[in-house]
């Protein structure tokens, strides 16, 4: 076949390039632009180099928010992954129960973030909420507006209730994809239920669980709406996660330069950890060479 030496192929790539430019490259470059300038007003800006980055990296409140963020994502993953897998294992394998379970379990996924925050605020309010009133009447003082631990518990409940179904659905899909012969062979080999889980089900779910893990990590690391609706980052700064702090700096104080630098640092952290987790998850269980 004859080979054409021209650049026509670029036209075919152009639509994708335009879309990606508007959806990712231009916004990102705007942020980069902000992060290296001190902006006083339209047309009044000074190049400051990496000054904002230095300032943000030394910011004590950012450090606190970052550790809080890691603690939150860590807890979310520690609870949601095992719980999601357990639920998937407990679900029926065939019959009418399958659709009932699938629909019931997916309901929380269909509710908008803000609504979830509102539902849980009302549910846990110590004066009128079903949960809040009940637990206070049982003698346990509970108030998410006043006590940091209670705010955290409410957030975790909300988060677990909202997102564990995603892990369950993915894990269930992974489980259903395992051919029956594996279970039959395990039975014949005399494997216990635990060995069957550990040597067959878990390794076969690796792919879907990696996806679930990454999705849950990224989403929980970027959490905004729920703490914002619940307490706006309080009580005190106890639920001020990175995104809440970022919005405070960039939009409420209008510090675009530090906000830009912060955004980029945030972006790189998420990217870096997602990459590390992906690599680790791909290699676990392949240790025995």
């Amino acid at each position: 076949m004859e080979k054409w030496e021209d650049n026509r192929a670029w036209f075919l790539v152009l639509p994708v390039f335009v879309i990606v430019a508007f959806s990712a490259i231009i916004p990102l470059m705007t942020v980069v632009n902000y992060s290296i300038q001190d902006i006083f007003g339209p047309g009044q800006s000074v190049f400051v180099g990496i000054e904002w980055f230095e300032e943000m990296l030394a910011n004590k409140r950012l450090h606190d928010a970052l550790w809080r963020q890691f603690l939150f994502s860590g807890l979310v993953l520690l609870i949601e992954m095992p719980l999601g897998i357990l639920l998937a294992l407990a679900m029926p394998k065939r019959g009418w129960g399958v659709s009932v379970c699938l629909v019931t379990i997916s309901l929380p996924l269909l509710i908008p973030w803000n609504t979830i925050g509102t539902i849980w605020i009302i549910f846990t309010r110590p004066d009128i909420g079903l949960f809040g009133v009940a637990i206070n009447n049982l003698g346990v003082a509970f108030d998410h507006t006043a006590r940091p631990l209670d705010a955290w518990i409410t957030l975790m409940l909300m988060e677990v209730w909202h997102w564990t179904p995603l892990v369950t659905l993915l894990a269930y899909a992974g489980l259903r994809a395992i051919p029956e012969a594996y279970y039959q062979a395990a039975k014949i080999d005399g494997a216990s239920a635990w060995s069957t889980f550990w040597y067959i089900q878990l390794p076969k779910m690796r792919g879907v669980l990696t996806i679930a893990f990454l999705l849950r990590f990224m989403d929980s690391f970027l959490i905004y709406a729920e703490p914002f609706v619940l307490t706006g980052g309080g009580p005190g700064n106890s639920t001020t996660f990175l995104s809440i702090y970022l919005v405070k700096i960039a939009l409420l104080q209008f510090d675009l330069g530090p906000g830009g630098a912060f955004s980029l640092i945030y972006f790189i952290i998420v990217l870096l950890f997602s990459y590390i987790f992906y690599q680790v998850l791909q290699s676990v269980g392949r240790g025995e060479k």
């Binding site: 051919p179 012969a181 062979a185 040597y199 076969k204 269980g285």
Partner: peptide
Amino acid sequence: FQFPVLYDT
């Protein structure tokens, strides 16, 4: 079985 059944890990 028809398809090899192994403990992959």
